[in-house]
């Protein structure tokens, strides 16, 4: 007979308690946003969508979603444009200070946003870029560009360099080699990097919060202000916005997981 391990039971209890509470947190938000007069019962008796229309009216939801997607997509695209060439160089060339440069790039990913966010916000205010969407994009680039480089670098490195050499020997120009050979081979890497950046930027509260103005804030910052001024509107309406945020994040997370492994979400460089 197989021995039931004591440590195994403890393991499952710990995971169960953790997952139970996390799912409890998510389900309460969803149920509360759909409920009316839910206090002492285990589940709400009356369901309603009125909190969603209340929240949409209060927040100018189209504007909020527009700002969010404008920021998130710009950050992903700009990071790819800046990060891809760097990742290519790191993957294909050896040069002095390569390791120094790579470890320097880790720093903006490791330092928490609240620490460098305040001087960064001060600078963006001074340059009159803060409170605009462009300022929010610039601030969010800081942790994302190194992230993109570090995702793409191993991706390009594992592609056999002989494909490129063959194309070059057969007379293709550098640009043609890139467009016809390297780029198609790295499409999965590009998708991974873009999706992971999008997931991260949607959830990036601190930097957006420090730099955004009323017209350039993203959903997560709007949610914070709602929760901060909790007394001024019904909690169900706050949860309705939280559900909108949840749906956007989880959609991108699920697409991202098609390309990336879960551990890449905590990847901070080993």
């Amino acid at each position: 007979m197989r021995k039931i391990k004591f440590s195994g039971i403890l393991y499952w209890i710990a995971i169960f308690v953790y997952v139970f509470n996390v799912l409890g947190i998510i389900f309460t938000v969803v149920l509360n946003s759909l409920s009316k007069n839910w206090y002492t019962d285990w589940f709400p008796k009356i369901f309603t969508l009125e909190w969603y229309s209340y929240m949409a009216k209060e927040h100018d939801l189209p504007q909020l979603l527009f700002a969010t997607f404008a920021v998130v997509i710009s950050v992903a695209l700009i990071s790819l444009l800046i990060g891809y060439p760097a990742a290519y160089i790191f993957a294909r060339y050896n040069f002095k200070f390569k390791n120094v440069l790579l470890s320097l790039l880790l720093v903006p990913m490791l330092v928490p946003p609240m620490t460098y966010g305040i001087p960064l916000a001060a600078m963006l205010y001074k340059l009159r870029l803060a409170t605009r969407i462009s300022g929010v994009i610039l601030a969010n680039l800081v942790p994302i560009i190194p992230y993109v480089v570090l995702i793409l670098y191993p991706f390009i490195e594992q592609i056999d360099v002989s494909y490129e050499s063959a194309a070059r020997i057969l007379g293709a120009s550098r640009l043609r080699t890139f467009v016809k050979v390297l780029l198609p081979l790295t499409v999965p890497g590009i998708f991974t990097a873009a999706l992971l950046s999008i997931v991260r930027t949607i959830a990036m509260f601190e930097l957006t919060f420090l730099v955004a103005g009323p017209k350039s804030q993203t959903v997560i910052v709007a949610l914070y202000y709602d929760a901060y001024a909790a007394g001024t509107r019904p909690p169900q309406a706050i949860d309705a916005l939280a559900v909108v945020y949840f749906l956007i994040t989880v959609t991108f997370l699920l697409i991202a997981l098609k390309f990336a492994s879960p551990t890449q979400f905590v990847y901070r460089g080993k």
Binding site: M204, F205, I220, L223, F246
Partner: peptide, 10 residues
Amino acid sequence: TLGSVFVAEG
């Protein structure tokens, strides 16, 4: 992924 604001609200 959901971040501290969502978790706090929940």
